[in-house]
Design a protein around this nucleic acid. Sequence first.
DNA 1: ACAAAATCAGATTTTTTTATCTGATTAAAG
DNA 2: CTTTAATCAGATAAAAAAATCTGATTTTGT
Lengths: 143, 143
Amino acid sequence: MTVIFSKKCEYGLQAVLYLSAIEPGQIVSSDEIAKKLGIPKEFVSKILQSLTESGIVSSKKGKAGGFSLAKEPGKIRLIDIVAAIDGLGIFNSCVLGFPQCSPDHPCPLHEKWGKLRTEAYEMLTGETLDELRGKTMKKMKSL
Amino acid sequence: MTVIFSKKCEYGLQAVLYLSAIEPGQIVSSDEIAKKLGIPKEFVSKILQSLTESGIVSSKKGKAGGFSLAKEPGKIRLIDIVAAIDGLGIFNSCVLGFPQCSPDHPCPLHEKWGKLRTEAYEMLTGETLDELRGKTMKKMKSL
DNA sequence: ACAAAATCAGATTTTTTTATCTGATTAAAG
DNA sequence: CTTTAATCAGATAAAAAAATCTGATTTTGT
C-alpha cells in the first residue's frame, strides 16, 4: 500500500484545517485537537511544534496555552504545509523511481505524469485555508 | 517525504518495463535486471516472484532460467502491476486521511482531489506496456 | 551422473516511519 | 508563592517497509 502524504503530513493538514475553523484569536490545545481528530496527542503536538518553526502556526505556552494559526487563513496555502512536513520531493522525483529521469532524459511516463503532477501542485498552491474554511467547519462538526 | 508508489512497486514497474523491452520469447535473469536497473537483486527476485503469482510475468527455473512477460505487452496495463503490488487503496482513500471521508461526507478537498485521482487512474488503466515499449527501449539503453 | 546457474521460500537484519514516554519549562490563576 | 495545565525537547518503543542472507529446488549443459 502507498499513500500520497505521510501520516505526519495528513495529521498536520487535518490539524491546521481544524485551526482554521476556530474563531480568530482563539487558541486550542493539542489535547483538544487530538481528541476531535482521533489521532495521538503527542504526535499532533510534535507536528504542530514543527509547523510553529515553519511559521505556519503559533503556540502559546503555559496554562491556557495552545495553538493557533500564525497568519491569516487566506495567506496559508496547502502546499506550504506539505512543503514544511513532507517536502516537495514528490513533485520533483520520477514516479517510476528512475534516478536518471529528467526532462531531457524522460522515463516512459514522464510527459503524462508530469501533467498530472503539475495539476496537483497547482491545486495545492491555489487552495488556501480561507477557501476551505467553510467546508471544514461543516465537516468538523460531525467528526 | 512521501511517494506515490512504494519502492516495491517502483521496482516492479521498472522490471516489467525492462521485460517488455526484450525480444519476445527471450528470458532474462533477476541478476541481469538488478544490475541494469541498479536495484537489489534479491528484492527484484522477490517482487517478480509475486508478479508471477499474479500472472503478469512467468518464470523459468534452473540454469538459463529467468523471467519474461506472461502475456502480450498490449494486454498488461500499468494499473495491473500497481494493483498487484501496492493495491488500489491510494485510489479509494481520503487524501487528507479523514477516515469518514466519502461522497456524501466529503473532506474539503474531496471534489478537486477526486478529479485528479480519476485522471491518474485512467492514465494507468489506459497505458499498456506495448504503448510504452518504444520509449522504454530507447531509455533502458542508457541506464 | 554431476556441476553450474538459476528460481524459490522463508528467515533475518536494517532502516524508516509512527507512536509513546518522561521530564523540563512556561505561564495563568488562586 | 504555589498549583495546575499547557508547550517543548529529547529519548525510547513499536510497527512497517526495505534490504539481505541462507539454503533448497529445479533445470541446463558437460
